[in-house]
Structure formats: structure tokens, C-alpha cells
Design a protein around this nucleic acid. Sequence first.
DNA 1: TATTGTTATACTCTATAACTATA
DNA 2: TATAGTTATAGAGTATAACAATA
Lengths: 135, 135
Amino acid sequence: MEAAIGFRLRRAQLSTFQDFNESFSVKGLRPTDFAVLLLLTRNQGSKQSDVAEALGIQRANFVAIVDGLEAKGFVERRKSETDRRVQSLFMTSAGEAYLAELMPIWQDHEARLVALLGGPGQRDALIALLDKLYD
Amino acid sequence: MEAAIGFRLRRAQLSTFQDFNESFSVKGLRPTDFAVLLLLTRNQGSKQSDVAEALGIQRANFVAIVDGLEAKGFVERRKSETDRRVQSLFMTSAGEAYLAELMPIWQDHEARLVALLGGPGQRDALIALLDKLYD
DNA sequence: TATTGTTATACTCTATAACTATA
DNA sequence: TATAGTTATAGAGTATAACAATA
């Protein structure tokens, strides 16, 4: 009989996202918003469509996400000077401060998952396996 | 630094579902439809809301799924005689025949995932880890 | 011509409340 | 009163096409 890998994957993912959402509900933050901030903080000035692609989001749908983060003052769009078609994305200092507030919540969330898995070694094993499934 | 377990989980799941969808696109079948058939074939007469819960779907949203499978003639609703509120779900013989057609496609899909993971042992390890994340 | 960001739109999934028929 | 199934509806998330500005 088969193992239904996809089914277990979906179930685990839903469970994990639920924990994330409960953790961040006070901050009114979605996983994707957090991922954008996390990605930008070490990649200041990234091209908007590059960030979208890195997160597996289509550029058309990414527009509203950046709009939201920009409206909150956490992220800033600046037109590239070398190619006036592209928007370069930057974290604002407010965004950096906000992310600093978020990190402990994020770390608690990750620690909870690691505890469920049975330790950092198990987490690393899981990630190695998950990455094999991703092309 | 953190491992972003949820992010990797989501990425792997999307990749896996994409493979599933490509495999079953000829049959016009969704993962959930297949899961219902697979579940019913060994649990004839299950209560509708039990099947929904087992698949992590709310009963309100499950109605349309059963409607679709019933319209195609693969599944049949029968009112329980012991409790006239509940619908018992049964596979039809057409449903069994359809599932028999689907199984090889399903097995190929699973085999492809196992190959990516590096063998059945790795698959079992992955499933054990995923199940730990699911309450 | 091709690409980036954008808008508009449709489709799927999911969440919630309320109704009905039964218990 | 409570439960199973149902309906209706609203909100996310996602996919596609088309357009303006720029290359």
C-alpha cells in the first residue's frame, strides 16, 4: 500500500501554519508578509519580481502584498536607476524595528516545531528531505 | 538562524501537489476527490462528516465534493436507518472501476516522490517526521 | 520585441452563520 | 437542546490576460 506522501505533507503543513497564525495573530501578520520581511532584511534592494519568485508567488499577486507592507511603512519601493522598469525593495527602519519585535515570536514557533520533531537533528533531517521534493 | 520549517513544508507540498495534478490532469481529478475514493474503498458506509473530518475538510465544504462524486456516479449517499440525520457514503461499482484505473497513476506518482527522496527508507523517515508535526 | 510592474478578473479553497430534519 | 447535512456568503489564495512604461 502507498504512503500518501502528499496527504501527510498537506496535513503537516496546515498544522504548522495554524501554529504560525496563532503565534502571529496578535501582530496581524501573515506567513507571507513575514517571509518578505525576513528575505528583504538580508537582501536590501532586491528586485520586486525576484522576491516574488523566491517565495513562489506570481508577480501579479505580489503587488498587493508589497502594497500592504508599504502602507504600513515597513517596506519601500524605489525605482531602479539602471533599469527604470524595476522596483527595488528596501526595508525601512520601522520595518527593521518591527521585524526585531517579531523574531522572538518566530523563534518560539520554530522551537515548538523542533520540540515536536524531537530535536534539531530531526529538524535538519526533515528539511533535507523536504528540499529533495522541491525542484 | 532559523530553519523556516513551515516555508520548506509549503514549498515541498506545492511541488508535490503539482506533480499530482499533472499526473491526474487527464482524469480531471483533484487530490481531494482521489482521497475520498481511496478512503471510502476500505470504509464503505462511512458517515459523511467522518470522512470530511478525516480529510481535514469542514462538513459545509464537503457537501459540494460529495455532490461532484455522486454526479459522476462514483459515490452514493444513503440515509442511515439507525439515525436518519446521517448520510452514509458508499462507493458504486463504477467508482471501484474508476479507482482501479487511477491506482497505477497514483503509484507512479508516489514512486516518483520516493525516487526524489532516495528510497523507501527515506520516505518512511519523512512520513514519521511529518506525522509528528500533526496533532 | 521582450520584460517589469500593474490592473482586472475568475476560479478554487476555506471559514462562518443560519436553516432543516432529525435525535 | 444538540447534531448532520445543507445553503449561502465572504474572504483568502491563485491563475491568466492585457496594458503602460521601459529596455
